[in-house]
């Protein structure tokens, strides 16, 4: 491993830029993400910054149960995120549809059908501590040796 690669690994671990996408959630999980920004949990101390722009993001946080309007838009949005990138789903909805997954409802979970999901955080909603620890757990290995792993693949 070259020195440049080592520096890239160290920097990518400590500087994660996030964009969150609400694919039809009830806002419960969005409020828990908001609580992560508050001084009590303070995700910026770990180098996690929120930009609501997929073109600036490394990790996109997905909440919500995939409503019909998002089915074509979410893969489109995923293509706009520059690599290295990862998707983390928050809450039960992107996994199973949670309370909304009833006969006749207009949702189509799971989100992993449409884009590759790196980690899923269950809970309705998950605590801010669970969100932070999940993101920190994947951060160490997610973008490690990205150039080596993606060699020969389409960007």
């Amino acid at each position: 491993m070259t020195l440049l690669q080592r520096i890239k690994n160290a920097v990518r671990k400590r500087s994660i830029h996030i964009c969150y996408v609400n694919t039809g959630s009830c806002n419960g999980c969005d409020i828990e993400i908001l609580a992560c920004l508050s001084p009590r949990y303070d995700i910026e101390q770990y180098g996690i910054y929120v930009h609501n722009n997929p073109r600036e993001a490394d990790v996109i946080l997905i909440t919500g149960a995939m409503s019909a309007q998002w089915i074509d838009k979410l893969p489109d949005l995923w293509d706009r995120v520059p690599g290295p990138k990862a998707a983390v789903t928050i809450g039960n909805c992107p996994i199973s549809g949670c309370a909304f997954n009833r006969p006749g409802s207009l949702i189509d979970p799971p989100v992993s059908k449409y884009i590759p999901v790196a980690a899923a955080i269950p809970g309705c909603p998950p605590r801010p501590t669970e969100i932070i620890s999940a993101i920190l757990n994947v951060a160490d290995t997610l973008f490690e040796n990205y150039e080596i792993k993606s060699r020969g693949k389409k960007p």
Binding site: R40, Y41, D42, Q45, Y46, P122, R127, T129, I132, S133
Partner: peptide
């Protein structure tokens, strides 16, 4: 990095 309160309180209903 300061350690956030990463433990859940005792009254919290987990799974």
């Amino acid at each position: 990095a300061k350690t956030a309160p990463l433990a859940s309180p005792l009254h919290f209903h987990g799974f």
